[in-house]
Each structure stands twice: as C-alpha cells, then as structure tokens.
Design a protein around this nucleic acid. Sequence first.
DNA 1: GCAATGACATATGTACTACATATTTCAACA
DNA 2: TGTTGAAATATGTAGTACATATGTCATTGC
Lengths: 234, 234
Amino acid sequence: MAKTSLAKLQPVVTLSQVDKIEMHLQEYFRKENFLPGDPIPKEAELAKAMGVSRTAIREAISRFRTLGIIESRKNRGMIITRPDVFNNMERVLDSKLLDGDTMQEIFEMRLVLEMGIADILFLRKTDAKLGKLEDIVNRDEKTNNKTDRLKYDVEFHSMLYEISENTTIQRFQKLLLPIFEYVDNGIHVPRQVENANFVSHRILLNVLKNGTPEEFRNKMRNHLMNYFEKIKAS
Amino acid sequence: MAKTSLAKLQPVVTLSQVDKIEMHLQEYFRKENFLPGDPIPKEAELAKAMGVSRTAIREAISRFRTLGIIESRKNRGMIITRPDVFNNMERVLDSKLLDGDTMQEIFEMRLVLEMGIADILFLRKTDAKLGKLEDIVNRDEKTNNKTDRLKYDVEFHSMLYEISENTTIQRFQKLLLPIFEYVDNGIHVPRQVENANFVSHRILLNVLKNGTPEEFRNKMRNHLMNYFEKIKAS
DNA sequence: GCAATGACATATGTACTACATATTTCAACA
DNA sequence: TGTTGAAATATGTAGTACATATGTCATTGC
C-alpha cells in the first residue's frame, strides 16, 4: 500500500441530531438578535417548531447552559445570559486531567502577563491602590513565617492585577492560582537577601510609585528571574 | 423595615439533582484516579448505582462532554478525555454576547501578552523561525495593498507567538483574533512612515535577532503605542 | 482452512409519555 | 382590602421503547 497521508481528509464528521439542533439554535439566537436577559421560547415550542423531541432540545439547551449562555429558572422559562469568558475553565482545571506540559505552559503565561502588565499599571495606578500595596509589603517584611510570606507573595501579585483594573485579567489570574501551587512545587524561593540581584516587593513598589514602566519591567524580570531560569531548561 | 444587606446571605442555592450527580461523578472520577483514555461505566450502570434515572445521568454526563472531559463513542461506551483549556471559549466568544467592556479587556490582555513575551522569545528563538519571520517582513514591505498589509501584520504577530513555542498561548491568541477585528475597528493604523517614533516590524525583527529582551520590550511598546494611547481614555 | 457473510449483543442516541415541583395568576372569600 | 388557595404554566426527573452503529462470533461457501 502506498504511503498515504490520511490526516488531511479527516473532517468528514457526521453531526448528531443534537449537534445540528445546537447549530440551528445558535444561528437563531444570533439572527433574531437575542440579548442577555431576553427570554427564549419554551422547550415544547422549540421542539415542535424544529420537529424533534423535547429530549433532544433539552440536551442542546443543556450545552448552552453549561457554557453559561442560557440560564433556566425552574417553571419560569429560560433566558439568554451574558457568558463569563473563563466560565468553565475552572471545572476543566479542577479536573486534574491536564497534562504536565500544558500546566507548564499556563505557568509561563502567567510570567508573560506579569512582565507585560507594566504599562497598564502606570496608566491606572492610584494613591489608594498603592497604599494597599504598601500595606502588604509592610506586613510581608515583618513576618518570618514561611506560609505567611507565601500568602503575602500571592497578595502582592494579586494586588498588581487589581491595580490594572482589568477584571478579565484578574479573573484569569485567580483561576490560575491553584496551578501555581502545582507547578511552583519546590521552585518557590525564600526571601533572597543573600542574592545581590534579587528585586524585592519593596523595590517593585517604589519603582511603581516613582519610576517608569521600563524600569518596572526590568525589575519585574529580575524578580521573576528564578522562574525564567527554571523554564529555560524545558 | 430596617436597611438590611441581604446580598450576603444569598448563597443558599438549592442544588438540582443533576448538579449533585455532576459533583458525585467528578469526585468519583478523581478518587478512582481516572485518566484520559480510561472507559467509564455505562449509563445504565451509573443510573442504577446512584439510584437515579438514566435521563439525569445523561444530562450530567452531557455537561462533561461539553467541557471536553468525556467523549462518548456511539455504542462503544464513554471514555475520559484530556480537556483543552480553552475548549469552549470559542463558542462563548462566537456567541457575540460578551459586552464591549469585556471585549476591551480581552484586547488589553493581548497587548499585555505581546509586551511580556520578550524573554521567552529570546530563550526559544531559532534561525529557522527567524527566517520565517523575515520572509513575512519582506513580503510586507513589498506590498501596498491594504488588506495584504493587515494580513501580514497578523502573520507577523502570530509568528512571534509561534516562536515562543508555547502552544497554549498560541491557541489563546488564535482564539482572540476575531476580537481584534471587532475592537480594532478604526484603530488599525497604516504604515507610519511619517511618525518618527514608529517601530516597524523590520526593527522588531532586527532587535530580536541581535538585541536584548529589554530592547525588544521597549521597541514593542512603541510599536503598540497607538493601542495604548487608545486604551488610556477608557 | 480461511475469508466473506450475516445474525446477534451491546450501549449510546432519540422519542414519547407521565408526573413532580416551583412560580405566577387570579378568583374566591372573610 | 388583604389573604388564601386553586389552576395554569414550564422546567426537572423518571421510565420505557426503539433506532442505530459497532463489535463479536458463528455460519456459510470456496
């Protein structure tokens, strides 16, 4: 037999009935310009209109519900809802089914975000927020308890995201926190007073107060250096 | 009536039967240490074991299928699958139900990623990849066609993500491309030969070849300046 | 023997019916 | 007028039956 490349003619995909219903509904919602809050037809009506059983309709609708596009209030009908972009990622992450490589990549994504957020921070920083950040740094410097310091580390970086005022990025970061615990395993470094190059939270704070985005990015890079060293190998 | 804050004691949430089944299954899969590829019990068996109808089981399973955690092959049973982190975000984005603010925030996230990816690029760049990037720049510089230049712009930035070799970030970026078209609307700037500060793709390429991550970040910042100007107002 | 054919078992997909349950509506009643 | 309660409504759950695609295995024919 000749050495053929079958991979290219894969997508013959036979759509199931429910798949088709899902597509039709999606199209319907869009064409009729449904907006969040709008009620959609009853299950029975949809079933009758599309000539299929209520069972199939329910399964299709169930998908939209899982995606957060539709909400159904018992006995009152269903409405379109505004989905959360990262809605279901939570459950996927929680499933512990992601492979190590993906986890590692997501971890990298966090590093990238922290490096890149500098400009936004300088655009949005306020005295109030900087004050909160300073509180965290103060408390951090006062403790020697290992778990406390870990906690303050998380708080510090979370606060940075909060200063960005981008709730989507914040949400993403919160979602990812459990992953850091997974990947962080063993990497997390103690306060590095011994390392001359180490950039502390205090330094980052001061740069954010009086410095420039460029400075901040460079300091942040040093602050996260250990992680970059770690991923270089991968 | 006193001015009370009822908001805080909302979460009395009555879980539906299917919700409970979903939780139980999730726990079951984890405790039994199911891995991708493993077959799970038949619907009928699950229904009997949990003392509920097959209907309810099917709806719970349907959620896992929507999330990409389970795959069912007709008449052959169901197996655990490795979910894609951004699996269903596609459908959510496609629903056009996200509000403008969220879109804007996602757009910002892209800027942040592009700014922060410099270090990874320098860690992973190869001559082959740089060659491809140069090809794109060459073709870009040769054309004056507006749509072509837009195409090359997308290609250039996509190629950067590719150089990062982080397929998760790549996937995320591809997912977001349609959003850029939405938000980009009217912002997208023509080749700015007239602007002395403007950093071209050619410059970025050269810095990536012979410069440092710090330089690259600064150049990239200038390259994306127009967008930052735009978001400042928001 | 061995390959082709076909019957059967299996498990998911779809359909239909019935009833449970929570919410709203609205009329009856004190 | 305000309360109560019955009817109507629409989703949630249960159960049954059958369709359909896949795999198994025995039968058939060369």
